[in-house]
């Protein structure tokens, strides 16, 4: 039996109706499951469907239980454990505001360019960087920025999709 705690990315197609997010989140908090990140937005405005991506972790038994409980929610149309698929992509968008007062930024900008990060705002006091990447790329980015003073940052949470033409069914 698999007792290891593994990370799982769950992609959930739900009715975009009031309270649906509360149902999903309430299920996690009420049953003591872990949410590492969460992102949600409408993806089909005709059928009023939203796609929720939850990153969670647990033993196989726990994660199977989470999936079975989620699948039982009435507004949940479909649920895919992306991590169980052969190949998938997972990306996150982050915005970071750096304090650059009295600092040289030439080197920093070079490095950011190499990582294909975008500078959205730049003045004597601050730089706002936009970066999109996989969790590993995000980590790398963080280590590069370590020497700088981060004023604030915000992250979208992971969004994910499997490769191949077999898409998550509604």
């Amino acid at each position: 039996m698999n007792k290891k705690n593994l990370k799982h990315i769950l992609s959930i197609m739900v009715d975009n109706e009031p309270g649906v997010l509360a149902r999903v989140v309430g299920l996690f908090s009420g049953r003591g499951y872990n949410i590492e990140s969460l992102s949600v937005s409408e993806v089909d405005s005709h059928k009023f469907l939203s796609r929720i991506t939850v990153v969670t972790s647990g033993t196989k038994i726990i994660v199977d239980q989470i999936k079975a409980q989620l699948a039982k929610l009435i507004p949940v149309h479909n649920l895919v454990d992306i991590t169980e698929l052969k190949s998938f992509i997972g990306k996150e968008l982050i915005l970071i505001k750096l304090d650059v007062k009295n600092k040289k930024t030439f080197d920093l900008k070079k490095k950011l360019e190499r990582l294909s990060a975008k500078i959205l705002e730049e003045n004597d006091l601050e730089i706002i960087v936009q970066f999109t990447g996989s969790p590993n790329e995000v980590k790398k980015m963080e280590s590069i920025l370590q020497p700088y003073k981060i004023i604030e940052q915000t992250r979208s949470g992971l969004v994910s999709m499997a490769t191949g033409t077999d898409y998550i069914k509604k």
Binding site: I61, D64, A68, Q69, A71, K72
Partner: peptide, 11 residues
């Protein structure tokens, strides 16, 4: 009838 009843507390 309920998949969430399976392996919930006993394998």
């Amino acid at each position: 009838i309920d998949a969430s009843s399976f392996n919930k507390s006993v394998n």
